[in-house]
Design a protein around this nucleic acid. Structure first.
Length: 173
DNA sequence: CTAACTAAACCTA
DNA sequence: TAGGTTTAGTTAG
């Protein structure tokens, strides 16, 4: 497992990975220092204690290809960010929801209700909102592409940033 | 185990 | 458009 910070036009992004895939990816911060501070909560027991880290060396992960794609993303290019994810941080329900969200392509959106429908919880729109809020790998799992049926919905990192990401992808709400 | 939360959707008027 | 109601899953106690 490892961690690093990469620089894009939008700022410094902290990321970390385990033997299974990406463990966290933060949105761009204006300074290197801030990016490092935002990584701290992920570097405690939850990161070190995951059994998959110790028991499954997994494929070697190199951040360079991801860095290239993220730089392109913030230059407005419609990139595919389907990099491997460590799913062990989530409950079963969260995993079902996030895996569906993972496959939403650049520039498209779904509503919380639609996602619930597709993962077998037709009335679970609110629960879907809670589940996407547990996403640790922003952009890789594009939870900003899940919106309310009548508006933008919410976003853990602030609604302005959600609007900004959707704006990059050409979606106005 | 219950109760109190939601990043929702629906119904009515 | 505004309001109250229904809803499923997570989390705290």
């Amino acid at each position: 497992m490892g961690k690093t910070v990469i620089e894009t036009r939008a700022g410094y992004m902290g990321l970390g990975w385990t033997g299974s895939g990406l463990a966290f990816l933060n949105l761009p911060a204006p300074t290197l220092y801030e990016a490092e501070m935002e990584m701290k909560p992920y570097l405690g027991n939850r990161f070190k204690g995951v059994t998959s880290v110790k028991e499954a060396p997994g494929p070697y992960f190199s951040p360079e290809p991801l860095e290239r794609e993220l730089k392109a993303y913030f230059e407005g290019k419609p990139v595919d960010l389907s990099f491997p994810v460590d799913w062990s941080f989530y409950t079963d329900f969260q995993r079902r929801v996030l895996q569906r969200v993972y496959s939403i392509p650049w520039g498209e959106v779904l509503s919380y209700g639609q996602v619930g429908m597709e993962v077998g919880s037709p009335r679970g729109a609110r629960a879907v909102g809670g589940a996407v809020g547990s996403n640790r790998v922003l952009l890789i799992i594009p939870c900003h592409r899940v919106i309310a049926h009548n508006g933008i919905g919410g976003f853990g990192g602030g609604l302005e940033r959600k609007r900004m990401l959707l704006g990059i992808e050409g979606i106005k709400i």
